[in-house]
Design a protein around this nucleic acid. Sequence first.
DNA 1: CCTTGATCTAGAGTGCGCTCAAGGTTGAAT
DNA 2: ATTCAACCTTGAGCGCACTCTAGATCAAGG
Lengths: 123, 123
Amino acid sequence: MTWFSPGDVADRTGLSLDTLRYYEREGLIGPVRRDSGGRRLYSGGDLAWLGVVTCLRRSGMGIADLRRFVGVVRGGAPASTEPVEMLRLHRSRLVEDIEHIRVALSVIDGKIAHYERAGARSA
Amino acid sequence: MTWFSPGDVADRTGLSLDTLRYYEREGLIGPVRRDSGGRRLYSGGDLAWLGVVTCLRRSGMGIADLRRFVGVVRGGAPASTEPVEMLRLHRSRLVEDIEHIRVALSVIDGKIAHYERAGARSA
DNA sequence: CCTTGATCTAGAGTGCGCTCAAGGTTGAAT
DNA sequence: ATTCAACCTTGAGCGCACTCTAGATCAAGG
């Protein structure tokens, strides 16, 4: 089994060491193994899981939701349908977000075109 | 010309009165006209502009960028290409955001499917 | 042995985008 | 004349997600 140092994991995930420790404190990952000196050793599984976490995080899921999500995944089958509801809710937010971004894109493209014409005139 | 009270504008835009005042303080809108008693009167143009602002805001553009954007739009043609650069930068961030959200959607859909199967088994 | 660099902990600080509190004014309605 | 809701200002407070500080510890290299 391969283990990864905090520095390695920071490099691979793009997260800072502080953020890694923060996520652990918040229960988003771990408990992370330690070596005899108390240093963290991340497993390949930890790394993969961090991939999922950062993906959801980047999509705007908050720490609290993420923690609940993690609890469900690591606790095995969900006791209720509530966690799935949470996912569905986040999913629908994401669909909305995409739509908002699309609208913003068209506004921005309009402005860019406008200023490009202005720039061409004044140049 | 039609004028709108703060309450009206809050209703129409979905922004709170506090947020409207905050945006004004931050230079995102106005100077907003006042009546004899010092109350704000928003014009149709203010309302339309607020539409653009909220659209960009929802897409994740920060207050500082928005302020620069506003300065450019209200100052006429841009003196340099810098504001257009800012828009392009935000645009490329938005394209990335959409991609991130898409990835998150597929992760979420996978998890939802997983827990639906689990739920069906345990039911 | 001593230095160096990576890591550790606890806890305070930061930046952003609002949001709320307190106390005062306005103007339409009763 | 009084009441009431809507509005005003200043300034403090909040929630989130980090981020930084300070001081200690550890493992390896010279």
